[in-house]
Design a protein around this nucleic acid. Structure first.
Length: 565
RNA sequence: CUCCUCGUAGCUCAACGGAUAGAGCAAACCCGUCCUAAGGGUGAGAUGGGGGUUCAAUUCCCUCCGGGGAGACCA
């Protein structure tokens, strides 16, 4: 039985004859009531005016004995309920205290396993802020789904074979001397060198037919594990992976299963070849394609004319492996929305090669991180690196904290900076683009990660002054700021449930912002330390509940709370 | 050319088909700190154009305009 502050209201409406789904909305102004019930639906079925229906309901509900409700008023086409503050307080605080960190957890995913596949950077390529958004988003989705009761497998599919590698290695060959010297340098410098080599190879590839052929040969050599390239391939691949590990650690993500393209490409080719016989895939201009056009989609090449598997063929084998290993009810691929059409074709092809995957594969598309100056491109080398962004955020926070003398200041700086970056990515709806500009995107005030951490630090500070929390009766009078905070705390479970259903972390981010704003209202209006008796005890319990919910919400975003800041 | 997406204050973002479209930043003024001012308050500021469906449209449909993406051997 899930906790619902409106369950008594629902029961009351039922008892006076309301049928169908009952949903409550918040009135536009707090003075108008705490919950509103719209009467348009009933008006339609009863063929009365909604205003009339609202008035009738008001009269009938007023006759009911309701513990939670202090007043009912028909306002226009709505029935507005005013809740009894003390009752709400008892209910909400009791529930949060009892459930602690479990407060807001759901059960729809209970007993179900899902895979969330995210990060998936390609080796030999730059790790830019788009990848950073991916990891931050994926990490949050994992936590949100776990919070809904799912068992989540964290997967990461890393591209370590393919044309992009060939392009990079061609570049490395051209920059042979630099390659030899860079070997002894830091991981950052080695990876920067790979980015440079990739840009060189990629640009030359498009301009020079001869180079195009050479890169094609390198690509084959990688697939066939040819001696000519093996050592260079292995070493540079290792650099990328070492670098990725450092980034995963820095942003606080981890994976249960690392998949590599190199472990699925052979099987990918087999699957397509088997299906050519069954005429699911057909020969065309020397390549093997899947006729997506017969399903209102578009055709795609699965094996190129040299017989090598493309990205699409590898994905067929990846899916096979994932279902064989985990048999999940769903696989979420966290991939930028540019590939939405691609995934439609892939999933259609999978219905033939792996029928059980039907309805279980899902592309979780997220928006671009656009630069003010235009789109990023690792081909041209015009990228903003993920590390740069984190470093930059740390510099800003360091400046703000220059006066501070916290003992663990460095940790706090790192944490606050990471919170700022993560929140900046997560507060925008998952499918929307982010127009990236450091000054406006990574904010440290207002609608920002640090603002949320600041709320937590303030609460902790007050609780420290209060000392041991005793239990006590809820005071008779609850002021507006307290009541609004309580009602918001009561909504947390509904918000986390919806965030998991969509799924979209921005709902949690937005909830936390409103929570922080309500807390600020409360903070300005009510003193905890200076209050007395029951009020003091109640307020201390209230802010402790706020802290519990805030911490849990931030956890769902992948953000760690600092004690002081 | 085809398909997919997006278009809300100067900027960055909100709004299960519902009441007076909410925030933050920037800019103006105020609260000099009495539980951490990384805070709070006051005022100003927006649904690209045109149709349609509906009691009700930022939200659904059509169309136009504008941005972005995808469309055969990259991922």
């Amino acid at each position: 039985m899930s906790f619902k502050i409106t369950s008594e209201l629902e029961a009351a409406l039922r008892s006076v004859g309301v049928e169908g789904a009952i949903e409550f909305t918040a009135p536009p102004k707090a003075e108008m009531g705490d919950f509103a019930f719209a009467c348009f639906g009933i008006a339609k079925t009863q063929k009365k005016s909604p205003v009339e229906v609202a008035k009738e309901l008001e009269l009938r509900i007023k006759n009911e004995e309701l513990r939670m409700v202090s007043d009912v008023r028909a306002v226009g086409s709505y029935v507005n309920f005013f809740l009894n503050g003390a009752e709400v307080a008892r209910m909400v605080i009791e529930e949060i205290t009892r459930r602690g960190d479990d407060y807001g957890m759901g059960e729809i995913g209970k007993g179900k396993k899902v895979i969330v596949e995210f990060a998936h950077p390609n080796t030999h390529k730059a790790f830019h802020i788009g990848h950073l958004r991916n990891i931050v988003t994926g990490e949050s989705l994992v936590r949100i789904l776990e919070n809904a009761g799912y068992e989540v497998v964290r997967a990461n599919y890393q591209g370590d074979v393919g044309m992009h590698i060939a392009k990079c290695l061609w570049g490395v060959r051209q920059l042979r001397a630099e390659y030899e010297t860079v070997k002894n340098k830091t991981i950052t410098e080695r990876v920067a060198f790979l980015g440079k080599a990739y840009a060189l190879g990629s640009q030359t590839f498009e301009q020079d037919e001869k180079v195009k052929a050479e890169i094609g040969e390198i690509n084959e050599s990688i697939y066939t594990h040819d001696e000519s390239i093996r050592e260079m391939y292995t070493e540079t691949r290792g650099w990328s992976l070492e670098y990725f590990d450092a980034i995963y650690a820095r942003v606080g993500s981890r994976f249960d299963r690392l998949y590599f393209e190199s472990e699925v490409f052979a099987r990918g080719r087999e699957i397509v070849k088997e299906c050519v016989v069954k005429e699911i895939f057909v020969q065309s201009e020397g390549a093997v394609i899947f006729k997506g056009s017969e399903f209102g989609l578009h055709d795609r090449v699965f094996l190129n004319s040299k017989g090598f598997p493309t990205y699409e063929a590898k994905d067929l084998a990846l899916a096979e492996k994932q279902f064989a290993e985990f048999d999940p009810v769903a696989i979420y691929h966290v991939v930028a929305k540019e590939q939405s059409e691609y995934f439609k074709v892939l999933f259609k092809a999978l219905e033939f090669t792996l029928p059980k995957s039907k309805e279980r594969e899902r592309h979780l598309e997220y928006g671009w991180v656009k630069l003010k100056e235009g789109k990023m491109s690792s081909r041209t080398g015009k990228v903003v690196l993920g590390e740069w962004l984190l470093d930059e955020a740390e510099k800003e926070v360091t400046q703000i904290m220059s006066e501070s003398d916290l003992p663990n200041k460095d940790d706090v700086i790192k944490n606050v900076a990471l919170a700022a970056v993560k929140y900046a990515f997560l507060k925008t709806g998952i499918e929307n683009d982010i127009a990236f500009d450091f000054k406006t995107s990574v904010s440290l005030t207002g609608d920002s990660g640090p603002y949320l951490l600041y709320m937590c630090a303030r609460i902790r500070s007050i609780l420290e002054k209060i000392g041991t929390l005793s239990l006590g009766e809820i005071p008779e009078t609850i002021v507006l700021e307290e009541k609004r905070l309580l009602l918001l705390l009561g909504e947390f479970g509904a918000v986390t449930a919806r965030a998991a259903a969509l799924p979209d972390p921005s709902l949690i981010a937005h909830y936390l912002l409103v929570l922080a704003q309500r807390f600020s209202d409360f903070y300005a209006a009510c003193s905890v330390v200076k209050s007395e008796g029951a009020t003091r005890i109640f307020r201390a319990q209230l802010i402790k509940s706020v802290l519990t919910v805030a911490k849990r919400g931030l956890y769902l975003l992948g953000i760690k709370v600092v004690e002081k800041m």
